[in-house]
Design a protein around this nucleic acid. Structure first.
Lengths: 226, 226
DNA sequence: TACTTTTAATATGTAGAACATAACTACTAA
DNA sequence: TTAGTAGTTATGTTCTACATATTAAAAGTA
């Protein structure tokens, strides 16, 4: 009956100003270092108070898209995207469905980094991994730390800083989901030790199979709850 | 000479208030739906003006961590993490090194989703993929669209909404990096058609090999610029 | 002239007051 | 009981004022 009718300007001024500024940045093709108009100029151009403009600008400052200096004014800058991710990724307030998705995302990354590992691996890396594996104990408390150390090292080996940081952010999610489901950190037939051996002397294909086998319990669970 | 000396409160009030509120939310173990103190109460408690508090709150509103209603006040809510990601992921202002990292990230995801695909695939999915492949033409303009349609369908098949949205966000990055390097969308020996066939009748291992072969040109490039 | 010091101008940072507006509450009248 | 009305409250928005850092111009000195 009321299709096609939508509320007019339900959003706050700050929100709309944020959107306007986004459009403006894109249209002007701003690059890092480019100067922006002053707050008062923006306020006048948008027909809102300086206060509202500042609320919108504050958002961009948080994202790292804008930097400011007194007197000099504001300039566009490179945002730190993983830093931003960190600001929202608090497992406690994220809905379970999204947490499950992120859990899967971690598994997918884990399955997919084999090629990068074989491209970037060095003897030092292997030595470090062997060291980590050697330190593995049977104690339950240490178990998780070893998990983190081992898999974290793998991500670090990719030489991809963004991916490494992403993995670090996903760690709490992983722990949270495990806790939610009262699951333990179980490994498949293939152990960390096996994986290191393959990484040292084996082939990419063998490593992919090994990792799949290592993560099998998690994949099985997905298959069940499909 | 001046080691150990660090500037006092170099950051703005809004930034510090943001940090304080973060701590506060964590310490109080707030969950979605929980009410927050009023702006004036927060301002008084923090010893800053309501203005500054609003700038900090505006940031949380953007992230979706806080929602507000007049008179009722503010409540914690589930943030939309991919929505937030979207707000920072503008390739034009992100530094090249991060873009390269994201490019690799996409490849890693692509390599890693095989297991999820075999868990969730349905006859309808296969039929759609066959449809997409059938529509592929030799025209260069259509080539990119087919790439997007094909790989996008794969992500959608995972049933992982977060991953699908993530991939959609990475698409512009992919395009941007290709443009930067004057590269073309080249495929390896294994074509989309081959992949669909394997997905229909083959095994997970075959599919993984096929995908690796399909993405081989990109991996080769990484190997070179290692 | 060259160089240092002072002064002024300017854009952001912070504070405070005021009023608008939506929404909840309680009271009142039919 | 119910409908309507008035009052209260927390956010939304605007305006003014002043602090502060930093650049640029002006003035003074060798």
């Amino acid at each position: 009956m009321l299709n096609g009718i939508k509320p007019i300007a339900a959003k706050s001024m700050a929100e709309r100003v944020e959107a306007s500024l986004r459009e403006y940045f894109a249209k002007e093709n701003f690059k890092p270092g480019d100067p922006l108009p002053t707050e008062l100029e923006l306020a006048a151009a948008l027909g809102v108070s300086r206060n509202v403009v500042r609320e919108a600008l504050s958002r961009f400052k948080m994202l790292g898209i804008i930097e400011t200096k007194k007197k000099t004014g504001m300039v566009i800058s490179n945002p730190d995207i993983m830093g931003t991710f960190e600001k929202v990724l608090t497992p406690e307030i994220i809905d379970e469905s999204t947490l499950q998705d992120l859990f899967e995302l971690r598994l997918v990354l884990e399955m997919g980094i084999a090629d990068l590992l074989f491209i970037h691996k060095t003897p030092q890396d292997i030595a470090e991994l062997e060291d980590i594996v050697a330190r593995e104990t049977k104690g339950d408390n240490f178990r998780i730390n070893n998990e983190i150390a081992f898999h974290g090292k793998l991500y670090q080996m990719t030489g991809n800083e963004t991916m490494k940081r992403f993995q670090t952010l996903l760690l709490p999610v992983f722990g949270y989901v495990m806790k939610l489901e009262n699951k333990q950190y179980v490994s498949g037939r293939t152990t960390h030790k096996d994986l290191v051996r393959i990484l040292k002397k084996g082939t990419v294909q063998e490593f992919k199979d090994g990792m799949a086998s290592h993560l099998q319990p998690h994949l099985d669970r997905l298959r069940q709850t499909k």
